[in-house]
Design a protein around this nucleic acid. Structure first.
Lengths: 190, 190
DNA sequence: GGCAAATCTGGAAGCACGTACTAATGTCGT
DNA sequence: ACGACATTAGTACGTGCTTCCAGATTTGCC
């Protein structure tokens, strides 16, 4: 391992319990927090962001710029698992983005021929997005590489650890949803 | 709790061990994976993304559009914890972004008066970014609200859970870095 | 001294995401 | 039946992030 490679390796360190932390983040956050627990929350938040960037980067590499941004891919996977079309609004709600954004993501997928729009017979205001045969073929082609990539990303993780990571992340998201709801109710929106 | 509120609550469910999962993600990913472990990796990856979105949203709300995007805020926090300036290149390397991107983030902070550029006396090619008194005042003003927000986000999390979340996320990021290094070495870059 | 590499940034472009608004449609109460 | 109000997707616009390309200048190595 040459010095050039050493220089690029992340300098995460292990704490007394053998768990990773980023000393640079810790140094920066320590001055922004009052208690040890506050520091832990900031570090965890920063770590979530770091992990997300890592997943995004692996995704970007794996799809080779094939119009498969994270958001669009999520929609495509969702549509692939449905035997009928899904409305733009429903896609937006379940993805937790604005309908305008869902419109844009579907635009992208439609432009690439992976998805098409069809009228919703039950509501003339609404449009259903459905996956095309080309979209299903795309999903099929990327199934195995995607699995290999995720296996490599989570190399060294026990199944229980994957489950715990999922739970912790979803609890965080649930907390944020509750907070947003509360703020909306008390009219504290800016 | 009215039905309107019920309708907006996320439909995460608990598995047999009492840990959260998203049934919609599971339904979509099940058709994209071959083994249970693969499903766990995909679910964990999706959960990381969901958690990151949650943190971003809380951040956007807390800063009230005050020029504090996630990337810029990270740099500001970093500079606040340093008694001397830091070069654009160093900021870029430690943030894991390109120097062009770091340049843009510093542009934003400089435009808001929170950061200034000064020449690096040791290297005339280089520019140091340092936090301004206004930047330190900004940090001071947002310290308490930030802490309260993170406490609320991580409400119900034990300290050990925060540490585990941090470790799992950083292990994921470390895996990605190793993979990227390996790809770079074997020349498999696209 | 010569040259390759490093440094930052101007300029441009693409993409994700959000807000405000509009035309069309659907729902509900009178 | 009618009017008020809500919902739907998309237009127009803006911001931020990120990448690419190129250029001027500086630094370090042979």
């Amino acid at each position: 391992m040459s010095c050039h490679i050493m220089k690029d390796v992340n300098t995460y360190e292990s704490d007394s319990d053998g768990l990773l932390y980023d000393p640079r983040v810790r140094a920066a956050m320590t001055q922004f927090t009052d208690t040890d627990n506050d520091l832990l929350t900031f570090e965890a938040g920063a770590a979530v962001r770091t992990a997300n960037l890592a997943v995004e980067r692996m995704r970007a590499h794996g799809s080779q710029g094939r119009g498969a941004s994270a958001g669009a891919l999520d929609l495509l996977i969702r549509l692939n698992g449905s035997e009928h079309g899904i409305s733009i609004g429903e896609l937006a709600r379940t993805a937790g983005v604005s309908s305008r954004n869902a419109t844009g993501l579907v635009d992208t997928l439609e432009h690439d021929g992976l998805v098409r729009r069809v009228p919703d017979p039950k509501d003339r205001r609404s449009v259903l997005a459905e996956i095309t045969p080309a979209g299903r073929a795309w999903m099929k082609a990327f199934r195995k590489p995607s699995q290999l990539a995720m296996r490599a990303m989570f190399h060294g993780f026990a199944p229980e650890e994957l489950v715990v990571l999922r739970d912790l992340c979803l609890r965080l998201a649930a907390n944020q949803h509750r907070l947003a709801d509360r703020l909306r109710q008390t009219g504290q929106q800016p």
